[in-house]
Simulated assay, not measured.
Amino acid sequence: MTQGLTFKPLQPFKQWLENVDVREGERARFLCQVIPAQCPFERDVRFFGKVWFHIPPLCKLNPFYEQLVMLRFKSLCYLADECGEDITPYC
Rank of each mutant, 00 (worst) to 15 (best):
S75A: 15
L71T: 15
Q67L: 14
S75W: 02
L68K: 12
L68S: 06
Y65R: 09
G84A: 04
A80H: 07
D86A: 01
F73V: 12
E66N: 10
I87T: 14
M70H: 11
T88A: 08
Y90P: 02
N62A: 08
D86Y: 00
L71I: 06
P89E: 12
S75C: 06
D86S: 01
F73N: 09
N62P: 00
Y90A: 06
L68Q: 15
L61C: 01
F73C: 07
N62S: 15
C77Q: 07
K74M: 13
K74Y: 10
C91I: 04
Y90D: 15
L71K: 07
E82T: 13
P63Y: 05
M70W: 09
Y90S: 14
I87E: 03
V69N: 09
G84C: 10
E66G: 12
C77M: 13
Y78W: 15
R72C: 08
C83R: 09
S75M: 06
D86F: 01
C91Q: 09
M70Q: 15
Y65L: 03
C83P: 01
N62D: 11
D86V: 09
L68R: 07
E66M: 08
K74E: 09
Y90I: 10
M70T: 05
F64E: 13
M70K: 06
S75V: 10
E82I: 14
Y78Q: 03
L61P: 01
Y90N: 13
A80P: 00
Y78S: 02
R72S: 13
I87C: 11
F64H: 06
L61S: 04
E82M: 12
P89W: 05
A80V: 00
L79T: 05
L71C: 04
P63G: 05
Y65F: 12
Y78D: 02
P89Q: 06
I87D: 05
V69R: 12
P63I: 01
P63M: 08
P89I: 12
C83Y: 01
P63W: 05
L76S: 02
G84R: 12
A80F: 04
F64T: 00
I87P: 04
N62F: 07
F64L: 07
C91V: 07
D81E: 14
N62H: 15
E82S: 09
Y78N: 00
E82Y: 12
D81R: 02
Y65I: 05
G84F: 01
G84V: 02
E85H: 01
N62K: 02
Y90K: 08
L61G: 00
A80N: 09
A80I: 02
E82K: 12
F73S: 15
P63T: 11
L79R: 03
F73I: 02
R72K: 15
C83W: 01
